[in-house]
Design a protein around this nucleic acid. Structure first.
Lengths: 137, 137
DNA sequence: CTGCATCCCAAACGATACTG
DNA sequence: CAGTATCGTTTGGGATGCAG
């Protein structure tokens, strides 16, 4: 019991770290916006409410499953609201909450950096790949 | 050939959308920082160079594989540099490039929003879960 | 129209063992 | 010390079918 394998101490460190991460707000936010569809939905709702089917069309390429799942997550987090209109057929509208709207400023910052600097990243990638090719040749 | 199944048109739309996404700088940046370890490495390098083993210790919980992989990606993107010192044993230092350092401001913005607002998100989650529980009871 | 349940495949990741 | 190679498991996510 006084002896501990390397695997033991590693898994112990991992548990402590996981706990740390779970409590970290930045990590939690990163987990949210890193979701492939979250940012797209948020942006789609930026200028007002949208129906489920409108989102489905506007965010081409998203599956029903992922759209529904994404909307649930955002609703649960208080970033959007879901309004059900009981008629035939049913109608559901999604709207940003003030909290959700405030997240758009973060997205805008990301967009700004990307548009200003991603070109440089792409160039770096090509340079790296080119060098890797010539090294292996 | 004039007829197209729903599945066909969907996969066609998906291809077009994927192409659109691949060319989108914001998407590319999101793909980077959404990586679980990228932001942690970037922050770890914020105040200067670090050796591989230092990073490995500082970012507890990361496996060798993921750390190496993350460092390669960041190096390829021109966000960090890798300096090899040939001695026995070998020594490798990683350092942020100006480009990588500029990304820290984005990370800081995320951190600020998270610290200011994630509490509200957590409360929303509890409220949502509580309601879900009482609804199923 | 909106959404849930199921199946299933591919990619991501961790653990482990081995190398210059 | 700083990786690379391989394997097995987990997870994400699409396709499909069904339901209120």
């Amino acid at each position: 019991m006084t002896t501990m394998t390397a695997a033991d101490s590693r898994s112990e460190a991992k548990e402590a770290y996981d706990a740390f991460l779970a409590a970290c707000p930045s990590r939690a936010l990163l987990d949210r916006i890193s979701d492939k569809w979250v940012s797209l939905v948020l942006v789609a709702l930026a200028d007002g409410s949208r129906r489920y089917s409108e989102l489905s069309r506007q965010i081409a390429g998203v599956s029903q499953k992922m759209l529904t799942q994404t909307l649930r997550i955002l609703e649960r987090d208080g970033l959007i609201t879901r309004e059900l209109t009981v008629s035939v057929p049913v109608r559901v509208d999604y709207t940003l909450t003030p909290l959700g709207a405030s997240l758009l400023t973060i997205l805008a910052a990301i967009k700004d950096w990307a548009e200003a600097n991603m070109d440089e990243v792409f160039v770096a990638r090509e340079r790296y790949d080119e060098q890797a090719r010539s090294a292996s040749a």
